[in-house]
Design a protein around this nucleic acid. Structure first.
Lengths: 142, 142
DNA sequence: TATAGAACCTGTAGTAACTATAGGTTCAAG
DNA sequence: CTTGAACCTATAGTTACTACAGGTTCTATA
């Protein structure tokens, strides 16, 4: 039977979150309010472990909390199709690609600045990096 | 002479920030407190435009506020060398590369999930993406 | 069974880097 | 001289947590 019970600490460990994060997810409605012991301690089931894993992994993939709420809605409510999830994943992949492109441009700019700055014993007044940062449209020089 | 004066709105426009951002930078000590008019409006000089441009561009390159404070310290205080700035830029470039690598892994994971999910009319119960997110160590499958 | 201390509880404040709002004052153009 | 744009301050909101304080419950050992 799958009626193993988990304390919040075990749940957290099991899914790689911190206890405070579980509290937080409960507060914002990502995780349901679990049953409690007499004394008020939360008692979780394996389904909670699965759900929290889903959330954590989605976060790792760069989904925002609001997006994860949408994903969980698909899962919680019946009558949804794989296509909706697929579409979200594709959108996410595109957003990630854009971030990568931005960072690539960044890196090139930084490396160029470093290359220009050959004589690192220069006084700060002659530093090409400082210079580059003071001039307009660094980003567009790239 | 370079004694052109700028209102906060002009300063903001000139350097691509919002007025509130200038207020904020002043509050946290990135920008100095400028002189004021009788009525209390801030009056900026060209040096402020340059400084704010430096800050904005550094932010665009992914430097954190605290790092920019360090960079500005180099510039504000005498007896600093180009090498210190160069070292920070190199560190920054490396950090950016790491972020790029992370995102690449992300993108691959997302794309693989999308590819596996061929039949988007499937019910959500059979969605390989949802499946992948529920299983452990998605990130390590990549 | 008594007790120590680990783990839990709630609620609030802090983080980064702004953005937005409210409610009031000053400036500049016509 | 009036109008309305731009400015002022102060506070709250944003995102996704993290960290604390001050108290309670659970559990393992003596």
């Amino acid at each position: 039977m799958n009626d193993v019970k988990y304390s919040i600490g075990q749940l957290a460990k099991e899914s790689g979150c911190k206890v405070e994060t579980v509290h937080y997810y409960e507060k914002i409605g990502l995780m349901p309010e679990p049953p409690r012991t007499e004394g008020g301690h939360r008692v979780f089931a394996f389904s909670h472990v699965k759900r929290l894993n889903f959330i954590r992994r989605s976060r790792e993939l760069g989904f925002k909390i609001e997006q994860i709420k949408d994903l969980l809605k698909f899962i919680d409510e019946p009558n949804h199709y794989c296509g909706e999830v697929r579409a979200m994943a594709m959108l996410q992949a595109r957003a990630v690609q854009e971030k990568i492109d931005d960072l690539q441009r960044l890196k090139v700019a930084l490396n160029e600045m470093v290359l220009k700055c050959k004589d690192s014993n220069n006084s700060i007044d002659d530093c090409p990096i400082v210079d580059a940062l003071f001039t307009k449209q660094v980003a567009e020089q790239i």
